[in-house]
Amino acid sequence: MPKGTERRLGRWLERESVFRLVPLVPVQGLILALLAVPFVLTLYISLLRWRLTRGFWTAAPFGGLSNFADALGDEALLNSIVRTFVFAGTAVALEVLIGFGLALLTYRSFRGRRVYLTIFLVPMMIIPVVIGYNFSMLLIDTGPLNSVLGLLSGQDIRIRWLSEYRAAQVAVVLADVWQWTPLTFLILVSGLTGLPPDPVRAAQVMGATRWQVFRYVQLPLLKPVIVIALVVRTMEALKIFDLPMLLTQGGPGNATETLSIFLWRNAWVFNKVSYAAAASLLVLVLFSAVIFASIWLLRRERAALEADGPRRRAEWSRR
């Protein structure tokens, strides 16, 4: 590159109006190029009457909104939606609660903290496919898990984790909790570690009990972190696929058929691509309620934080 061009490029880049957009362009470009077209395709396909066994999609007949009508009347779809929300809700609630409890016990330094932290983070680092296979051995009714539970309780425990409707649902939730509590724990520990020491100390000086400090000082400060843990985990949990697929294939009956499994079956096993597309769009509409709720929550918390911004920056420069 000739020097002049380089300099001119450099100067062009120096302009704030340009520089601020430089990273945005590739990111937006990628998102548009990669997701926009498939999304529009999904819309189009949902209007066709196309099965994989019925020629190529370009030749499939137009079906109007019939797929949507079918989907709205499909009990299996509606059940899988409710099930997915219940699974995700329970799992995330447990993950945040347990994660919070563990975080409260570990955020200050003490002997052995490093060991605990290391071990606690392991589950989320294991590939879910491996976890699925692993749990399918552990969960047999005479298997390792029930043996241990039996040993602890002194009774013969025969919970049929893989073969009884309710137990299988619990098993899927527990497997998810086992794998992802590390993440909520990590987020919350991180939040607790980052809490400013001054308000806590001030409260202690004023004679607040441990509980009062927690309830009126730490918890409010921590609320935004709890919200982000909830939002991140909910987004991921609603997509749950690998674990129930590998543990129970959605069974017994349809007890553990999550939304992703339902859509997977319709698209890849039944070859009903158009139907699956229509169903996924309906699901997206439904999800958007969750999405907007999350965004609203996040914004509220961030806004509260940003109101604090100037003070925060002032503190920084004092250090």
Partner: peptide
């Protein structure tokens, strides 16, 4: 938030 299965075939 987009479940991957939604866009898998498209």
């Amino acid at each position: 938030m987009l479940p991957p299965i939604v866009i898998a075939i498209p």
